[in-house]
Nucleic acid binder design. Structure first.
Length: 608
RNA sequence: CCGCUUGUAGCUCAAUGGAUAGAGCAGUGCUCUUCUAAGGCAUUGAUGUAGGUUCGAUUCCUACCAGGCGGACCA
């Protein structure tokens, strides 16, 4: 219907001598302005030497003539000029009914099969996208920091999948680098306190011990560096050098003991992550084509060498202060578009950029050159991703818009950044536990679903670039604009449908049930229906802009409309001649809400 | 010092360059013999400062102020 209106609008410009006009059709904020609105008249008036209102009036007149001949006939109640030159379109009640009916049918799937997992749109048909998100680090805490990437990335993957894209989810595990060298040194130096590697393995919370050791390394080094004693200062330097050396040995793969310790750490962490993903309802499913490949996979010569060859082939690899770097401009700093990117450390080992380049080359080779590649990673890596994407563009791997960094702001404390190294972190497990405790006070049966809904929604309702100051109460909000509120609204609607079924009311939006027939002339129903039919467009927009919060905000408004309808319009009453229609709208709402929440990774419990 | 980013109500957030800037929390007053009151109804209250572009600016541009994050061998 939207496309139809746009097409006809474009035709109205033909007599004016414009054949290639682009027309945007928006949803008006205010219901009294109708179902769709367009500002084409205001935008193009100047170009045509007309006043906006004058042009709008002419367009409306032509539009009416064209509509009489088109398939929209009888579906458009009014087209009018308003304000400074807006053209507002209002659908007839019949058209709205028809649309709501279609929503029910589509969300309900063919022949009543539950196609909640089905597509909402096919704008992404034929396109393949790989989205890298979550990406926790081995032997580090899974903190609220990784939570954002996990929640947002998972939601974007769901939205893209629902809009027709073929989606590959990739958990790019941080299992490599100098950080590991530090941990190896710490295990060697202080690991015996915990019974060595075996003792750590068997302990109740092995990851906690590994993190404590890692923190201890940084604490000790910091203390030594700060001391007056020159000997201690030298010792601190040696420790860091030693850690780098360890990571070099690890990368060489020549020390079986070091490699074994690394393997144990990876296994312990993977076990821990799996538990958290289950609780969060997030999955990387190989059957679906998802992958969980660690950085370590990309450090072998068969992955690294092609990157070096590709860079050399374009003469991009330059030596600078002992390391190999890529310049963005000449070697003169004044010409730099961006600071140089180190691709190989001076000791010859890989750095994150090397591994990322290798990973992306591998992905192109595996999934084909048309692949859209997205990293959902914190905004603090903005500069790095600019460098990486610029490098890959220079290599000819990607074209514009095909390689994206979707950034999010960080969780921080009122008085500063979170930091694993300083031991200033909040473990996600603790947050989930606390949220479940709070949720179980109001819903013991589905405490985990409610808790997760609260946490996810609190994140997804925001524009993700914003930083979030960590606050227990806010993070677990279960009233007002919250995940549980939406779950509650949905469960409530389902209760009505059940009740109606018991009373023998058959949900029905009859054919030709126009105004004055079986469609009740009730403002709450009208508003709810007209908002319901926006769902597909909202999801498409959310996908195109990679912004789950578009859907979150839509669902909040939708729930408010339903709750208002619910509390003011009695529904399941067998004597009410409008009952069949009301129940049908309730059903459309419940299905839309459940599908919408699913796109945010939120499950609707059976009962609340 | 340079770059990126954010600044909206007492607090936390919305608002693809549009019409009367929306919510939630907190406050105040109503509302459960009725399919779920985690709800509904009413009410108080805001675009950092100064310019510019535009028919129209919270949105785009410039400067300033304030917070956050980055800036070569961590990721």
């Amino acid at each position: 219907m939207k496309d139809e209106i746009i097409k006809i609008l474009q035709k109205t410009f033909e007599p004016l001598g414009i054949s290639d006009i682009s027309v945007a059709l928006d949803f008006p904020e205010n219901a009294e302005y109708g179902d769709y609105t367009s500002n084409v008249a205001m935008i193009n008036a100047k170009r045509l030497g007309m006043k906006p209102v004058e042009l709008a009036t002419k367009i409306v007149a032509d539009f009416d003539k064209l509509v009489a001949k088109a398939s929209l006939k009888g579906l458009m109640k009014s087209v009018s000029v308003a304000g400074p030159g807006f053209i507002n379109f209002t659908l007839t009640a019949e058209a709205v009914s028809k649309n709501v009916q279609e929503i029910s049918r589509e969300l309900n799937g063919p022949k009543g099969s539950n196609s909640l997992k089905g597509q909402i749109s096919n704008i992404g048909a034929g396109k393949k996208v790989l989205i890298e998100y979550s990406s926790p680090n081995i032997a580090k805490p899974f903190t609220v920091g990784h939570l954002r990437s996990t929640i947002i990335g998972d939601s974007i993957a769901r939205i893209l999948s629902a809009t027709g894209y073929s989606v590959i989810r990739d958990n790019h595990l941080g299992d490599w680098g100098t950080q590991f060298g530090k941990l190896l040194v710490a295990i060697e130096k202080w690991g015996d306190e915990f019974g060595g590697l075996d003792g750590i393995k068997k302990s109740e919370n092995p990851i906690k011990i590994l993190v404590d050791l890692y923190v201890k390394f940084h604490d000790e080094v910091a203390i030594m560096e700060d001391s007056e004693d020159e000997k201690l200062k030298t010792e601190a330097e040696e420790l860091v050098t030693f850690a780098r050396a360890k990571s070099k040995i690890l990368e060489s793969g020549k020390d079986p003991i070091i490699s074994e310790i690394w393997k144990v750490c990876v296994d312990l962490s993977m076990h821990e992550f799996a538990l958290i993903y289950t609780r969060l309802g997030v999955s990387f499913d190989p059957k679906r084509g998802d992958t969980q490949i660690g950085e370590s996979f990309f450090v072998t010569p068969d992955k690294i060498n092609p990157v070096r060859d590709a860079l050399n082939a374009k003469n991009l690899l330059k030596e600078s202060e002992g390391a190999k770097v890529v310049f963005f401009g000449s070697e003169d700093p004044k010409s730099w578009k961006l600071p140089p990117l180190i691709v190989e450390k001076s000791d010859g080992t890989s750095i994150y950029a090397t591994r990322d380049l290798a990973a992306d080359l591998y992905r192109i080779n595996t999934y084909g050159k048309g692949l859209i590649l997205i990293n959902e990673v914190g905004a603090e890596q903005n500069l790095y991703f600019k460098q990486l994407i610029e490098t890959e563009t220079m290599l000819g791997w990607f074209t514009k818009g095909q390689r994206l960094h979707i950034a999010h702001g960080l969780y921080r404390f009122k008085d500063g950044k979170m930091s694993t190294r300083k031991g200033k972190v909040i473990w996600l497990g603790d947050i989930l536990d606390e949220a479940v405790t709070r949720a179980s006070k109001i819903n013991a049966d589905s405490a985990n679903d409610v808790a997760v809904a609260a946490i996810k929604f609190n994140d997804l309702k925001r524009d993700s670039i914003q930083d979030i100051v960590f606050d227990w109460d806010e993070m677990m909000s279960m009233t007002g604009d919250s995940g549980p509120y939406l779950q509650y609204s949905c469960v409530r609607a389902k209760a009505v449908i059940e009740k109606a079924k018991g009373l023998g009311i058959v949900a029905h939006i009859g054919p030709g049930s126009g105004e004055g027939s079986t469609r009740p002339k009730i403002a709450q129903i009208d508003l709810l229906e007209r908002y319901l039919i926006r769902f597909q467009s909202v999801v498409e927009f959310a996908g195109a802009s990679y912004r789950p919060n578009v859907i979150a905000n839509y669902l909040i408004n939708l729930a408010a409309l339903f709750n208002s309808f619910y509390s003011q319009v009695m529904i399941a009453d067998a004597k009410d001649p409008m009952a069949a229609y009301k129940v049908a709208v309730t059903q459309a709402f419940a299905m839309t809400m459940e599908r919408g929440l699913d796109l945010l990774g939120i499950k609707v419990p059976k009962k609340m």
